[in-house]
Design a binder for these strands. Structure first.
Lengths: 214, 214
DNA sequence: ATATTTTTAGACAGTATTGTCCAATTCGTC
DNA sequence: GACGAATTGGACAATACTGTCTAAAAATAT
């Protein structure tokens, strides 16, 4: 091994490290170039691995793609449930605590690499692999919405909010905290911390005008 | 011409009709297959036109793609400004009038073919053609947001709303009217009229709880 | 140190696609 | 009906990519 010709990541060592590195590079390339445009040689180079190794690990392009989606979906789900578990059930300052939660939700689940990647893949290839993506939705967003709605219901029950429909409130909360970010994220920009804070503040202010204890 | 072998649309007659038919079919295929996966022969077949005709009209694949984006962007912008011009400046029933406006906005601009197609293309290829899509954003969404904000400002000035920041209100209004539809649209579903009505009603109810005259 | 498994680089066949060329045909127009 | 422009279908070269195969090299376990 005279020179390491891996351009991006230095050639990973173990068996599992290679598997991960392949998934990572493949996610990158699938998102950047689309399924058809994704080039196995490019993935191999970016993973610091030979093409044959990819075929050894994953069989073929379609299987690799599904492995990528599954991996991203798993991580994304984990992030969601982790973050939702930090919901302010006993808030001191409701505005501030909800805003901080909104920042966490945006930063860890919606604006991060896995979140944006997964959303792009769903948009681009969702109709070609319906069961794969419906499975993701049912395991992920659907369940995390229920979890979030339960937290809002508890907040209302504790006298901090006035809600008719906790599910609707959860959906609208998520919609509001992205209102300021959607357009810039469409073109691939990653919002900075100040943008996240501002967006969360605006969203929670409006949310509490609508649902705060009068 | 013994048998017409065009599978989808019957072979269009005039010169301009062909141009349109090509753009239409190309939009379809680009959205369905992605830029790299889009096959010129397939576009030709779906347009009811020979492949050579596509090259005569548009030169090459990339030029065709840009023509598609420009066409969709133009239509989409026109829809936006048309619809915004129906904003209820002198509402009788504010809830009902805003909800009806929200339905129009969703149906004519966001959930229709051009809107979803354009959004998909931006998401998929926006980073490859930054100037093309930044041009679209500056000519379209940016300006239509300003126009919508002006309408909300007028409504506030007329005593129908209590707003600090009309631009923010416009962004949040749009975010809210999509809160219930985002997830289903992600997988390609087109919401029916009842879903549009329900989503608009929920959105406007919350919007007025936040910004309605006390 | 040796045996076994994994990885590598490259060659390779098969296939698909883009864009060009051209002769025959059709269409719009006078 | 006749002329010029547009259209068609098909052949064609050039290129690119997937997935397989192989022998050599490296890594890992014994």
């Amino acid at each position: 091994m005279p020179t390491d010709n891996a351009p991006d990541s230095c050639a990973p060592r173990g068996h599992e490290e290679k598997r991960l590195s392949i998934i990572e590079a493949a996610a990158d390339v699938f998102v950047r170039e689309g399924y058809s445009g994704a080039n196995i040689d490019l993935i191999a180079a970016q993973a610091g691995v030979s093409r044959q190794t990819i075929y050894n690990h994953h069989g073929d392009k379609e299987t690799l793609f599904m492995a990528v989606v599954r991996e991203l979906a798993e991580r994304s789900n984990a992030s969601y449930f982790n973050t939702i578990s930090t919901f302010p059930d006993h808030p001191g300052d409701l505005q501030a605590d909800l805003a901080a939660f909104a920042v966490r939700l945006n930063r860890n689940c919606i604006c991060n690499r896995d979140g944006t990647f997964l959303r792009k893949l769903v948009q681009a290839e969702g109709e070609r692999y319906p069961q794969l993506f419906e499975g993701w939705r049912d395991q992920g967003p659907a369940r995390s919405w229920i979890a979030l709605a339960a937290r809002f219901a508890r907040l209302a029950h504790g006298g901090h909010l006035e809600l008719d429909d906790p599910d609707l409130a959860a959906r609208q909360f998520v919609a509001l905290i992205n209102a300021d970010l959607n357009m810039s994220m469409m073109l691939g920009a990653v919002p900075g911390d100040d943008a996240l804070q501002a967006s969360a503040g605006n969203a929670v202010r409006t949310f509490l005008r609508a649902f705060g204890k009068r």
